[in-house]
Amino acid sequence: MKLAISSSGTTLDSPFDARFGRAAAFCLVDSETGIWTTHANPALAAAGGAGVQAAQFVATLGAQAVVSGAYGPKAYDTLSAAGIARMLAPANDAHSVAEVVALFKAGQLTQAGAASHNGHHGA
């Protein structure tokens, strides 16, 4: 499965970024082959609606699932319209992207049931 993992850097060892819309980058990993690429998040510079833009971006990357720490309601709706699964990784532990992939393979990630934070005004 093609996973887009929110990341704060450009490699598999980079720390996982718990934010979705404002993540620095997305690491696209094929969980079967282990092949990965990283992509700077174009929504980082957005004045508003970063989650919507990031969701469309991961859709164009061909991701089948995303892994992040939380999803705003608009990002959630956009991902869901795109048919992309929304997984949650624990936000507080300092995982690397590679460790998040391992958690996924071990079946230890949970599905995000609904928007897990209240959007662009939230702080």
Partner: peptide
Amino acid sequence: FNAIAIVGKKALIF
């Protein structure tokens, strides 16, 4: 302002 999302054959307006 990212008020419109087009994903596949779906259009969303915020």
